[in-house]
């Protein structure tokens, strides 16, 4: 993979708004943002309702993903362009889903909704109609997903990257500061994890830093990328962005996203936790 296979810029999206083989998809943390307005002809995927199992904590299975994309009018040979708010946190999470289920032709709008808005580009309320498809997903690719036992086995051995803010890493906050702080899990981080906040990957306008800047960031933080790497955050969306940087932009094959993340790890009985910087 390279940057051109992963990202498109706003001008590219603007030029393909009426291209029937390009499906622009908004995925927001605030699932109501789409209802206010969105990029013309964009469809919505709701990360809570569409991407999660309705009962147990897990993502939708292969049949569920097939049904979702069929319902949204996305075909196997369509180019999917994801974008969203929060600097593409949840769009990156959706990108990781599309890769888990083998959709190769997926891109991220660099800068997401924020860059589009700061450019004062057009947003509309009209919801497009797309004919349903018969989407076929591949079997889930578990090589890019880490589970809690992988994290425990990685302590002191492999790269663990905690991408939350420094205050969440040290245990002073339990959630990103736009959310209420009362949570059930313990504060802190996985021992031996390095704190490389997701925000270091991005510019203020939400676009990704250059490949050279990104490589330099991880080298300066002392991450040996020849070792396997697991990224985590609170629920796996910010770490999906870091996964995208390492696995897709910097082409590191041995990187996994731990989507259980701190809401799982910080609730486990008996596991080691570190506090402080």
């Amino acid at each position: 993979m390279s940057r051109a296979d992963v990202l498109v810029d706003a001008d590219w999206v603007q030029a393909h708004l009426d291209d029937p083989k390009v499906v622009v998809v908004e995925v927001d943390e605030d699932t109501t943002a789409y209802e206010k307005n969105h990029i013309r002809n964009a469809v919505r995927i709701d990360w809570k309702q569409d991407l999660q199992d309705p009962v147990r904590r897990d993502f939708v299975d292969q049949a569920g993903f097939e049904a979702l994309l069929s319902r949204k009018g996305i075909g196997n040979d369509d180019t999917v362009v994801l974008y969203g708010g929060n600097n593409n946190w949840f769009a990156s999470y959706a990108y990781w889903y599309f890769k888990l289920y083998g959709h190769s032709n997926v891109r991220l709008l660099d800068g997401g909704r924020k860059k589009w808005e700061l450019d004062s580009r057009e947003l509309v309320a009209a919801v497009p109609e797309r004919a349903a498809t018969e989407y076929r997903a591949k079997a889930v690719d578990t090589s890019i997903r880490a589970y809690r036992d992988d994290v425990l086995a990685a302590i002191g051995k492999l790269n663990l990257i905690d991408v939350r803010s420094p205050d969440e890493f040290s245990g002073k906050l339990l959630a990103p500061a736009h959310l209420p702080q009362e949570q059930s899990q313990r504060p802190g981080h996985v021992p031996s994890a390095r704190n490389i906040p997701w925000a270091k990957n991005a510019n203020d306008d939400g676009t990704f830093k250059s490949d050279d800047e990104l490589r330099e960031l991880y080298q300066a933080e002392g991450v040996d990328l020849s070792k396997d790497t697991i990224a985590y955050c609170r629920i796996g969306e910010r770490s999906a962005l870091t996964w995208l940087v390492l696995h897709e932009l910097l082409d590191q094959p041995n990187v996994k996203n731990y989507d259980g993340s701190w809401t799982e790890y910080g609730s486990l009985v008996g596991v080691p936790i570190e506090l402080g910087n």
């Binding site: 605030d30 929060n86 959630a175 736009h178 925000a199």
Partner: peptide, 19 residues
């Protein structure tokens, strides 16, 4: 260091839960 970010509401308002 970045800690959080929110869009402003239709009335220009914002809120954080910090320390």
């Amino acid at each position: 260091e970045f800690t959080a970010e929110v869009p402003t509401s239709a009335t220009g308002q914002f809120r954080f839960f910090a320390r």
